[in-house]
Design a protein around this nucleic acid. Structure first.
Lengths: 264, 264
DNA sequence: AGGGCTCCTTGATGTAGGTCAAAAAAACGC
DNA sequence: GCGTTTTTTTGACCTACATCAAGGAGCCCT
């Protein structure tokens, strides 16, 4: 069985014929987004709903929105009204200091939720940029909170999503504070490929949607260092790199670089 | 008016006579924690409750718990059941990699909430260590969620607390990824003193509750570099340092180091 | 009061990764 | 299809911070 690697933002089978027929069978007016029959449901929605509750849950999503590559979904200072569930495409989020330095705080793919930074102050504190053409489900936060009160399982889900983000950032702090360039890049690749694999893609091949500079910004290193480290891994036969395409030849070697303990 | 600087974990007036009398006037059995008349309420609880709701809200806190300096409130792998509101004392939270490297992910003081990392997987992923004798309010997360469903203002409050933590960590990522040692330490001092000031302490004097090594771990630098940078600031007359005691002589100079843009 | 801690400071030296520069390779626009 | 722009790679050199090392200061315990 051959895994797909082409488009990371899409989940295997998402743009299936079912999907197309579903859309065509409705008049433009009646096109209403519906979590209840979304292939991504298991990624961004809680499990274990009975059918009628699931119907109700469709109300979280108000509309969908398409974002072209390079465009911003939201940016620093924008009023916060909604969370966004990524349907297709790939995003980066970044903060920038007054003097223009930019820090990429994360890369997000289909099924992940962005916009959580806006809750605390009612305006966004970071930018979300589409790294490829994307579509998101717009979930007005008022809806999220209202339905959370009604459905404990949704409430718990929202809490877990936020907690997961906190724990992820803890891990990035460990990377940035304690790890060397090779360890950071190994961790980065392993994390990406693991998330892609969870979406039905290959666990050994991927196409990077971000530049060396963006990877570097995320990992606290310069683009030249990213490039050199890729080359080093490649020379050692750990990966194959051709521009944005990466093939992981020796996943264990990567794991060993990231964490010498766990692998022999 | 002279601000206090002695004990960071306590908020000005917290251990007042009122407090002592309040405790003495009750029999041991009837001692029940109560947010409704806690001096810290405005720090860790939402505003704008009417008295009877406030009564109800007391149910979030099950018990209190004292933690001695150096002891852990929770540690990696512990089952997650509760969030903790710090009443007095000062904590650090840290994660550690398999090979023993430790990354301090934050320092927390009175009125702040810790334990959010545990929500996602039902066990804690970091350690919380008391840097001085401390007392926390134990808030079973089940209570928090139940009352959140009943009181939208509490629900919103919980969401804001988690979002604030996400935004804080974004800022730390910027520090670790983009800033030089001096900028990191300046940012660190300004942040600490600002939070202390919000609790009624001086905006120019503070006593550090953590070692140089812990500061270094948080800021991604070695303890020697922390020490040298303190000395440099001291030589330049920006601060006065005597071991753990720090006096900020030129706050604007610190701000300028942290962010050249905002200050002239 | 004295001995053994831990914590902090400061100096000398080393190095990982940053900076600068140039060219090659893709990607893009018309 | 061709010129322009963006992205990537690689080399040569440099620097901010790490590492190693040695004292010194404060603190706890008996």
């Amino acid at each position: 069985m051959v895994d797909m690697i082409a488009t990371h933002g899409e989940v295997k089978g998402l743009s299936s014929e079912d999907e197309i027929i579903y859309w065509q069978s409705m008049t433009p007016d009646s096109i209403k987004v519906a979590c209840s029959n979304c292939n991504l449901r298991e990624l961004c929605m809680p499990m274990g709903f009975n059918p009628e509750d699931l119907q109700k849950l469709d109300e979280v999503v108000a509309t969908r929105r398409k974002i072209k590559q390079g465009e911003m979904l939201f940016s620093h200072g924008d009023a916060f009204t909604s969370l966004f569930a990524i349907r297709t495409g790939f995003f980066k989020t970044c903060v920038s200091s007054e003097d223009g330095r930019e820090q990429v705080t994360g890369f997000q793919m289909a099924g992940e939720i962005i916009g959580l930074d806006g809750i605390v102050s009612d305006y966004h504190s970071c930018n979300a940029v589409a790294l490829e053409d994307a579509e998101v489900c717009v979930m007005p936060f008022a809806n999220v909170e209202e339905l959370s009160r009604e459905f404990p399982v949704l409430q718990r889900h929202v809490h877990k999503i936020m907690s997961r983000e906190i724990v992820r950032e803890n891990g990035v702090m460990m990377l940035l504070g304690n790890m060397r360039a090779e360890e950071r890049l190994a961790a980065f690749l392993l994390n990406l490929v693991q998330r892609l694999h969870a979406r039905g893609f290959s666990q050994s091949e991927l196409v990077l949607r971000m530049t060396r500079e963006e990877i570097g910004s995320y990992l606290g290193m310069k683009l030249e260092t990213v490039s050199r480290t890729f080359s080093k891994f490649s020379d050692e036969g750990i990966i194959e790199v051709k521009q944005r395409y990466v093939r992981i030849m020796q996943p264990d070697a990567l794991k060993k670089i990231f964490n010498p303990q766990t692998c022999s």
